[in-house]
Design a protein around this nucleic acid. Structure first.
Lengths: 191, 191, 191, 191
DNA sequence: CACTAAACGAGACGGTACGTCCCGTCTTGAA
DNA sequence: TTCAAGACGGGACGTACCGTCTCGTTTAGTG
């Protein structure tokens, strides 16, 4: 079936990177794992190693968001959705083989970036959340879009750096959502 | 003078990475720019290319924070300090040669990370801010440390992804601080 | 055509050694002369430079003996054969580029050996000669094999060190064979 | 004491070569064994490694001949001297560490030479023997110098390649001298 | 006895070559 | 035709020596 070869290469690339890290992964490695010859890799990825790595990563990123979307699809209220997002994302983040391997072996590839990539991720998350934010959740003068953006920023921040929160504990996730996220945008008891 | 060779290599490494990107930078390149032989690079960085790249980046990160600390040192109020931090950091971020080069040529080195690196940066920023946060700035029930952490997250988020804000406009920075950052923690009219 | 690459490398190696000497000949040199890349040299000679040099020399040694065998093939009597052997070998010896280059530039590589290598060469020459030695040539009590061995030793000795003989003069070669070689084994006027 | 450093270096060089072979011996090795710094090696041997190796070998060659001369000094008759020479030289040859090491590890450094070095050694041996050759030993028409030269060639040949003779057996040496060497030059029963 | 001069150890450095590894291109041969 | 297999040029890496040079530090020898 057409395209299966390409997909097999992406999967093989993913497997290799999660085993060896980016810079130690060889075109030969990927070809071997995919059960194909090195020449074929260049047929599907004329840009060579660089293109392959790039596509492996963005392919996996796509899969990540697909799973996230599904995980969050059943949420009712905003609180529930925030909770689900943080919960799922944190777990996915920790279990993410490539991510963990790269963090372990090549942190310097990441250092320069500070929080750069959020530029790409932010719109996704914002869009997710926007569907559940209502005027009732918000303090006076805060627009829906504005709030969704704001919440998305905080969600991403806590996923990446939970600080003292233990996000593997469902209760703490619930509490984080209530006291930090919703409190920052809602009318709340303080309002 | 002692240590000057090592420093020259770090500077050369920085120059090369900002010109060619990480993976296109050669040990030979760095040696040439530093005016030294390739062998000498290995005398100072026995870990070879990897160690060199790693140290170049963490050395530059150190310099960045030193400059940030100085830029913010004159701030009076919390608002002023937030403003200064966002203003300086955004400018530094955009003018940062290595960062921009890497983003341009090797975004895949960054993609996996989402907002990972914030784990390291967050404590720095939090500490900066904590010195200026006072109870008076905060809504009831919000501790100083809690608020500093919270503000640090938002500052980093806006620096990395300004969204629709134009952070090269001092006025917009001021407005962002007031309406988004301080409003989220303060007693304000909304609180 | 198969094996042509290997042969080209051997020829290139030979050319380089005869130009630069053994220790000044670089793998890069050989590759360049052969019109191939350095990597390919290691594909054909996994033992690297050492194996290459070793094989170049033993390959050339083989060619030398092939030529010697042919040169001597037409000889009739023992005297004729001895004459032909000395004549050819001395000429080949002097014209041998590698040999002369090594003698000129790296005599110390040779000094330790005294007359070592004769162990390998002796059997060859002995075998050549044995085919033409007859009882009639020998003094009483001297066996054919014994005499062939003996003559081979002397032939090699005079080739390497002609002493006061001018072996580029065919007449002197003839005279050497008669008065020194044959006289030592034959019944002769002295017998 | 003057000159002791130079001598120590030669001895160290000899030790290293007999341990590692020529091409594996490092200037650093020699310096270490000599208990001196690498810089000092270059003070005594401005020609560097090459000069050092060259001198080590010719120094050791000198010692070899000194020992040979002494070993043979007590000989009475020509037969006795020949016997002593063959006996001593063969033993020295086999026990010679550098020689054996080089033969073992770098035979290719020797192959090209055939019996070249004999040019240098021959005159030595010839001179030794000339002192004991008398007219009485020789067949008619054979001069003393001529015979000494001739015998020297044979002696060297048998030392290097004993063939089927066991030169570690004193009796066989004696017999070799009588039946092969003296018979070739003498009036003998066969002559 | 102090002072100088030579010898030396120590080590940094540029440079060259080695052997290895990997990339990307290309050719060949079999399914 | 498509693909596996693999040869090849190219280039970078990390290592090992070489030969040069510059420092201090002895160690003598001399005024």
């Amino acid at each position: 079936m057409a395209g299966s070869a390409r997909r097999r290469l992406l999967e093989a690339g993913y497997a290799c990177i999660s085993r060896y890290g980016i810079s130690k992964t060889t075109v030969e490695d990927v070809a071997r794992v995919a059960g194909m010859s090195r020449a074929t890799v260049y047929r599907y990825f004329p840009g060579g190693r660089e293109q392959l790595v790039r596509e492996v990563i963005s392919w996996e990123a796509g899969r990540f968001f697909a799973r996230l979307a599904e995980a969050v699809s059943g949420a009712g209220s905003l609180a529930e959705q925030l909770e689900e997002t943080v919960w799922f994302a944190r777990r996915a983040f920790l279990e993410h083989e490539v991510l963990q391997k790269v963090l372990e072996t090549e942190p310097e590839l990441i250092l320069p970036q500070l929080t750069v990539e959020s530029s790409r991720v932010l719109p996704f998350v914002r869009a997710f959340l926007a569907t559940h934010v209502t005027r009732a959740d918000l303090r006076a003068g805060l627009g829906v879009d504005e709030a969704a953006d704001f919440l998305a920023r905080l969600v991403l921040s806590y996923i990446a750096s939970p600080g003292s929160w233990d996000l593997s504990d469902r209760d703490q996730v619930r509490q984080l959502v209530a006291t930090e996220l919703l409190a920052a945008v809602g009318p709340g008891p303080a309002g």
